[in-house]
């Protein structure tokens, strides 16, 4: 059908506004300041990765990436360890208690926990885990719990009770049923949860900043990146090189999992 020209213009204009900054980001990361200012959109005259070396060494990005990998990986594992059994139990529970617990998790979406930034910081100090990655590994799964539990519960509800009864008649224990009946069927749901949590854990900034603090041995990539503003001042080439470096893992995952990631992002919001 015929679309009005103006909406097409707006749509593609917006798409251009999304893409051009990345183009600018990448080419600027290979240039010197003068070149960035005088020829903002032209390709660099030489391919110089000096800005990357500078960004990586001055913000200590290598240990920061390692820390981000550790925090994201462990937090993901913990999220699944807590959410899968919880969803399993809620999908099978028939009583009032089950409904109450499920309602608690659903309400979790509506609680603006950000307002409690400072008490979370106090909790870290209180548990002696202040200025460590460890506290973040504990905290992040809690923030993801409502979404993970609700998504997984919905998947597990689709499993017919008969299947489970048959397994239990064959003498399978609860855990065996969870492992061999529910988990295989829930793989798409788990993939959704993993992708969503990967994004939100990898990208988490404010909590990491206040809890982990400035220690280069502990801080994550998102906390390390903005320090470039201070250490390199207004050397925009270095700043952009650091930013590109930080974005690479996320874009790599998006390139590989496109459809899955899009589905995850949509269903994550819909459940919320």
């Amino acid at each position: 059908m015929k679309m009005p020209r103006i909406s097409g213009f707006l749509a593609w204009g917006y798409a251009a506004l999304l893409v051009i900054p990345f183009y600018y980001l990448v080419i600027s990361s290979l240039k010197e300041n003068d070149d960035i200012f005088t020829n903002p959109l032209s390709l660099p005259s030489t391919w110089d990765f000096g800005n990357y070396r500078e960004a990586i060494s001055s913000a200590e990005l290598v240990p920061a990436v390692a820390n981000s990998v550790i925090v994201t990986g462990l937090a993901l594992a913990l999220t699944l360890l807590l959410a899968v059994p919880a969803a399993f139990a809620l999908s099978r529970a028939t009583g009032r208690a089950g409904r109450l617990v499920e309602a608690t998790f659903s309400l979790g979406f509506l609680i603006p926990t950000f307002a409690a930034l400072f008490p979370t910081f106090l909790l870290a100090a209180f548990t002696g885990l202040f200025h460590t990655r460890t506290f973040l590994v504990f905290l992040l799964p809690a923030t993801a719990m409502p979404l993970a539990v609700i998504i997984l519960t919905q998947f597990m509800r689709t499993i017919p009770r008969e299947l489970e009864e048959a397994a239990s008649m064959d003498g399978a224990s609860t855990l065996t049923i969870l492992r061999h009946v529910h988990l295989p069927i829930c793989v798409p749901g788990i993939a959704t949860v993993v992708l969503l949590c990967f994004l939100s854990f990898w990208n988490e900034y404010l909590y990491s900043l206040i809890i982990i603090g400035p220690d280069p041995a502990q801080r994550t990539i998102q906390v390390a990146l903005p320090t470039l503003q201070l250490t390199t001042g207004t050397d925009y080439g270095v700043l952009m090189a650091g930013t590109v470096f930080t974005l690479l893992p996320v874009f790599a995952v998006y390139a590989v999992t496109q459809r899955q990631m899009q589905k995850a992002l949509v269903s994550g919001a819909v459940k919320g």
Partner: peptide, 14 residues
């Protein structure tokens, strides 16, 4: 476990 975890780290601070 999931519920308690959630309560300690997010409801507690609120």
């Amino acid at each position: 476990p999931g519920l308690i975890w959630y309560a300690i780290f997010t409801i507690g601070p609120v």
